[in-house]
Amino acid sequence: MDTTPIAPILQLENVTRSFRQGEKEITVLTGVDAVLWPGQAVALVGPSGAGKSTLLHITGLLESPTSGRVIINGHDCATLTEAERTKLRRKEIGFVYQFHQLLPEFSALENVVIPQLILGTSRKAADKHARELLASVGLAGRAEHRPAELSGGEQQRTAICRGLANSPRLLLADEPTGNLDPHTSEHVFRQLIDVIRRQGVAALIATHNLELASRMDRVLQVHEGRLVEISLAQTR
């Protein structure tokens, strides 16, 4: 029996973020701490302007914190060069947005292949992996279609596959079902959670949908610049 301890995928330690606006300093995050584990779907909730997007950007290495540590799969990101941060972001982190942002001139398959080619994967291996991902979310028969030929739910499922194309350890999603009707939202949400479980990805999912949030493993609320873990009952 394997007794190797499971290591966290994401650790945030006393992360702060401030902006200067003219003569005034605006503090958005005042000391965020969090740990995410493999296969865990964590909801990130809070009112607009609370700092959810800022936190996702910092966690995704798209901007740096004013202070504190971001540790992804054992890598202390503050010690990395910009080139190392870029490589880590491409390999270890997947992104899914509210609006799919697929490249319109390419097919669903090509949209999932391209991130792999950027990382250096061979075209043959990238094509095979992309087809497997698309099949896993019920899109095997839609692989050659361009985004304009896909429904909203199919576009978003393709975007999820693109976010998982390089087998990231951490998936960051910003309102991934927010642009969909309730029925399609439910279908995409179930498939997203299923993929997270099967691939052992740690996922931080920002959402305003408290019903969906209540069905995730944990719910973290941005409150006065910090993260507070709240019970499911409190989200209702």
Rank of each mutant, 00 (worst) to 15 (best):
G138H: 12
V96E: 00
L44A: 07
A143P: 06
R131E: 01
C77V: 13
L56T: 14
L56V: 14
S122Y: 06
A130G: 05
G74Y: 05
T121S: 10
R146L: 13
A34M: 15
R123W: 12
A78F: 01
S107L: 09
Q101W: 10
L55C: 14
F99N: 12
H57F: 13
H145K: 14
L88W: 01
N111A: 11
R89D: 08
T54E: 08
E110R: 12
E132H: 12
C77R: 03
H129N: 09
L133S: 01
R131V: 00
P104F: 09
C77E: 05
S64Y: 04
T59I: 15
I118W: 04
N111H: 12
S67C: 09
L61H: 03
S107A: 13
G31L: 03
A135I: 00
P65L: 12
G138R: 10
G31A: 06
R89E: 09
V45E: 04
L56H: 10
V35M: 07
F95R: 03
E82N: 15
K128S: 11
I71H: 00
D127I: 00
D127N: 10
D76C: 08
V112F: 01
R123S: 11
E84D: 06
S67K: 10
D76V: 09
I118H: 04
T81H: 06
I72Q: 00
L133I: 02
E63R: 13
T79C: 04
Q40E: 15
G60H: 06
H129E: 13
A43N: 11
Q101E: 14
L109N: 00
T54D: 08
V35S: 05
R69L: 10
T86L: 13
A140D: 15
D76P: 08
I93Y: 02
T59G: 07
L133A: 01
L119R: 03
Q40T: 02
G31S: 06
P38R: 05
L61N: 02
P65W: 08
E82F: 09
A78K: 03
T66W: 03
L134T: 05
L55G: 11
G68C: 07
T81S: 15
T86H: 07
A135S: 13
K87W: 05
R142C: 09
T66A: 06
V113H: 00
I93A: 03
L56E: 10
